[in-house]
């Protein structure tokens, strides 16, 4: 005799938690890169720093008044460290308009 099984779901269900997830709408786009300050954020992975510097050089060739800031990925962290949420405060302190993050490899 073959048994029949009625089974429940093993997978996570957002509705199990009353904790509401934050919904984040993407930031407004820049009107142009001309005259803007761009934060470069390197987080851990090999050669991400070189890639960011290469991209900055290429962008700089297109927009001569573009400014770049090599940002730490959070308060008290160093260029290249694992990031934390305080990166948002740093972005405000640096007054950056946009950011490029070497993020995963």
């Amino acid at each position: 005799m073959i048994s029949n099984y009625e089974v429940v779901s093993p997978i996570g269900d957002a509705s199990d938690a009353s904790i509401s997830k934050n919904e984040t709408v993407c930031a407004e786009p820049l009107d142009s890169l001309a005259g803007k300050k761009i934060g470069l954020v390197w987080t851990v992975f090999a050669n991400g720093d070189t890639a960011l510097r290469a991209i900055a050089q290429h962008l700089g060739a297109l927009y001569s008044d573009l400014e770049f800031v090599e940002m730490e990925p959070g308060q008290g962290l160093s260029w290249g460290d694992h990031p934390d949420a305080s990166i948002a405060d740093l972005a405000r302190q640096h007054g950056i308009d946009g950011a490029i993050i070497a993020a995963g490899c």
Binding site: A27, E28, V41, F45, I55, P73, D97, A99, I101, A103
Partner: peptide
């Protein structure tokens, strides 16, 4: 990091392999 920056109103592009 991209999420935290977008939340702060900074458009942020992630470069991933």
């Amino acid at each position: 990091a991209t999420i935290w920056l977008e939340e702060a109103g900074v458009p942020a592009v992630a470069v991933v392999c």
